[in-house]
Every structure is written in C-alpha cells, then in structure tokens.
Amino acid sequence: MKSFKLLTTGFLALSLAAASASAATLDTVKERGKLLCGSNGKTAGFSAPNAKGKMSGFDVDFCRAISAAIFNDPDKVEYIPLTSKQRLTALQSGEIDVLSRTTTWTMSRDSGMGLSFAATTIYDGQGFMVHKDLGVTSALELAGAAVCTRTGTTTELNMADFFNKNKMEYKPVVFEDRSEEKSAFFSGRCDVMTADRIAMAGIRANAPGNPDDYIILPEVISKEPLALAVRSNDSEWFSLVRWVAYALINAEEMGVTSDNLAKMLKSEDPAIQRLLGVNGNLGEKVGLKKDWAANAIGAVGNYSEIFERHVGPNSPLKIERGINALWNQGGILYAAPIR
C-alpha cells in the first residue's frame, strides 16, 4: 500500500503544473521555457495542423510572435486545443497563458469573468453560408430555414436576435463540435450555416466537392472583434501581449517586413529605430529585451504578411483586407504608436 501511495503522489506531482497565476505570468512562462497557447486546432486558416502535423494559421502566428518576443524562438509554444465551451474556463483557471482562438471581445467577457482582451487581431462579423442551389441571395430570405451553429458562442445568441428581430421563424440545430456541424451542413441537414464570416470562408474553402457551390450571403449581422485574451490579474503580461500584437501592426504601417528586417535595422527613421530596439529600450517596459519586436517580426512577419499567408486573397480563404486594412488605407486597423 505504501508504494501505491508513493506512486500516486509522484504521479500527481508530475502532472500538476504549479502555475502561479497571481504572480508574474511572464516569469512562469520563462521558467517553464514555453508559452501555453489556447487554440482551436480545427479551424482552417486560423489554427489547424498543416500537412506535417504542425499547428499553423492566423491565430497560431500571434502565439508564435509572442514566443519569439520572449524567447527569440517562435516554436516554444504548446498549443492546447480547446472547445468553444472550455476556452474561457481554461484561461481563468491558468491552464493557458494566452487565448488566441477566434474569441469575440464582448463587454460581459471583458468585465465579468476575470479576463481582459489585450488586442483585436482581426475584425470579423457573423454571416450566413448557403448552398448555391437554394437560390437565396439575402439573409432576409431565410425564413423557415434550418440553421446549423455551435453551442457556447456569441454566434448562437446573434442568430436568435437576428431571426427574432426580423420576425422570421427558423430551426436551430446546435452542435458541440465543429466537425459535426460541418458534416450536418454539407450533408444538407441544415439549409444555412452561421458563423464568423472569415472562419466560414475557411470552411467553404475546404468544402467537400466544389467550394463554389456554396455562397456566403452579404449580410453581416454582428460585430465580432476577435481578440487575444489574458487573465486580468497580471497587467504586465497584458501589456506584453497587447504590444506584441501592436508591434506587428505598426511594422506593417512602417513597411518593416520579415524580408527587409536586416535592412530596416539600419534605418534612419526614429520610429523604426524605436520599434526595432535600435534606439531606446521600450522592450524593458514589458519585461523583454530591446530586440523583442524585431524577433517577433523576423519570426512571423508583420500583420500584413500574417494576413496574406493565412486568410488573404491568395490563401484558400480568399478574404480581402476590407475593414482589416490599416487606418490610412481605408480600414480600421489602428495600433497605438510605439514610443
């Protein structure tokens, strides 16, 4: 019995990760040697295993950027796959350090749950996808349709609001898991699928058969700023995550890319010098070395590179920049300056 007890204790000790959540997250991450990133793992374009079984996608690159800023190595990340139901609990309980999983920034999540949203990574909105053969051109023609969605999302609530507001009847079919939802939609169990439009473009791009058989309707029924979330009890960590994201956006604004990084390090522009840590040491303010942003940009590229790689017009998702363009190029992407 004694050896049994010993073993149990040993087993528990091995598996309990004592993460001091109230203490500095950054110290814990450094000590651990890797970043715990809450991800989806099943959404093409945002986070999904690539052909080599490695996680890749838009959401994944922000975790890689944070890892590069801390460790000067984008691969010191462990991706914890979470369902939409589990993601907030996982962050609250300290199971992950940062949540990068197409999570909408809302007031109730930001204020009432011990979470804080550090930075919006992409501005999305909820939409509808239908089969072309239905001949539907507007979401207002969807009265009586069967609608597939997932439980535990803002999508489920927006959908109810939209149909009720427009006095249309509908049949919700709500799934726990995205793969069941996709299977139900593509088999024709539902007429419509509703989700965030960019994520849905990924689903459409991977439709069995021809992606052109499905159309995404023009209506956008909600605002979905998808953002990085952290626990609200560590403001230093919050700043770090926020400013890594902002650095990538600022890099695009200044024209710094992963390719011209070496050249830009010799730039005369004081703003670029501040960003890349050539002049001054802003990284210190968030507990990092002064070349933090240069490392992040070198690893994943600037915002535009990330966008183009995973969701842009040349990717399978074929999403235009639209409102996600920089503020000075007709979009609303606006990062506070680094100085």
């Binding site: 309990l16 990760a17 004592a18 993460a19 001091s20 309980s93 300290g94």
Partner: peptide, 11 residues
C-alpha cells in the same frame, strides 16, 4: 478548476 486554489492547475 474552480475548487482548486488559483495557483494550482490540473492538466
């Protein structure tokens, strides 16, 4: 996770 102290997370 709710029943555990904040600094302890179980896999």
């Amino acid at each position: 996770p709710l029943f555990m102290p904040e600094e302890l997370t179980i896999n």
